[in-house]
Design a protein around this nucleic acid. Sequence first.
DNA 1: GGCCGTCTGTACGCTCGCGCACAAAATTTG
DNA 2: CAAATTTTGTGCGCGAGCGTACAGACGGCC
Lengths: 235, 235
Amino acid sequence: MRNDITRNRLLQNLDPAELALIEKNLKSVEMHTGDVLHSQRSRIEKVYFPLSGMVSSLMMTDEGDAIETAAIGREGVVGGSAAVITDTAITQTVVQLDGRALAVPSSILVEACSKSMNFHDAMRRYEAVLTMQANQSSACHALHSVAARLCRWLLHFHDFAETDEFSLTQETISHMLGVRRSSVSVAAHELQHAGLITYSRGRIQILDREGMEECACECYGAVRKFMEETLPRHH
Amino acid sequence: MRNDITRNRLLQNLDPAELALIEKNLKSVEMHTGDVLHSQRSRIEKVYFPLSGMVSSLMMTDEGDAIETAAIGREGVVGGSAAVITDTAITQTVVQLDGRALAVPSSILVEACSKSMNFHDAMRRYEAVLTMQANQSSACHALHSVAARLCRWLLHFHDFAETDEFSLTQETISHMLGVRRSSVSVAAHELQHAGLITYSRGRIQILDREGMEECACECYGAVRKFMEETLPRHH
DNA sequence: GGCCGTCTGTACGCTCGCGCACAAAATTTG
DNA sequence: CAAATTTTGTGCGCGAGCGTACAGACGGCC
């Protein structure tokens, strides 16, 4: 468990005394693609510190459409707003990439935040990262093309996956970007034609990382930069 | 000044002891349409509690486009994240509708938050409202038509203006919605034709509030509902 | 190996909104 | 009152992405 903790960058940057506030209540859980960690508008009972994998923060509409507003990996926490702001989930959180997380009852986390300023501050800083991502996504979805957004999203995913090859259906991606599946098919072929990726039956391989960063909209870099500036340096 | 304070709903719900923490440092300021209260990525020096008027939270892109991700009026605070999260502005805040506000140096506010849990909590709750709006805008910009978004935006503006008639150029609206000016022209004519508004040379008059709520996307109602649930009842 | 379900490539018409351009109307300025 | 500026109405071609549909390709399962 002690070893697990260092895999989450948010926890990693806390002092032992602060960690002690929640350590006993941490429980390691598997996250599988498709798992819903929190439903939109429901009460947040558990908070997750990912050690690997990726979780999407999704905004759902009444018509049943969904759109990704932020992505969370081992640099952050899923459902942290329960401890920092309100105890109700603004977005739905869904596992996009298999991984593992340390789960803790939100009541424990709220208590830890009230006892330790540092703890509270770490949570708040990560909340700021999520807020920034939501704002950036707002601009991105309004102003940027499907191809650029696909590129951006694959770069983020690549960062979380930490491998150059991974499985992803076009269906899944289309839900993240809020476009239809065949638009993803066309855009993916553009990227493949440009020699940036290979895409075959749900297996995507990143070939030219630099080329993709050029093809992606500014949003990828902006999010990364804000994270670097806002989160403590990992040691 | 005491009388002014009750005009801001966030301050109105604080106890006298909590207000005393900032009261001496509050300064009444005029807000004029176009005024930039905070530039994106700059340090937040002052925080504003609007008493009237409206302020937009805008996300700017490198290409010079802008898009509104949230709107703030006398129910909230502009730049509150300086006290709650980071001291850097994620978005640019611009006055959209003339009004007045109580300004306070952010250092004073940060101190007040550290001294009073209630104060801190009120700020955090409003931050949640802004985060929710950013998420909702993300979905809205990606999935809803210009006409529905125009309707939504006019309803929000109507709430802040507290009059049925107001001045607004199509140019301004087009920047809020992230569409081009002539698209606004077309959409506005649709609404006028449907008998919902009259629009003549920058003077807009709301004729059929209920009809507009039907025409607007769900986002208007969702934001209002979340605000009702999250902010304390006004007494 | 054969069947079936999932995932993908692609095509076609259509709508929405862009990009641009320009004239008309109203307001401001000299 | 005339000129300049701002704001709006509108038209037209165009491209992006939707909605839908369908066939082919692949993988899993028996």
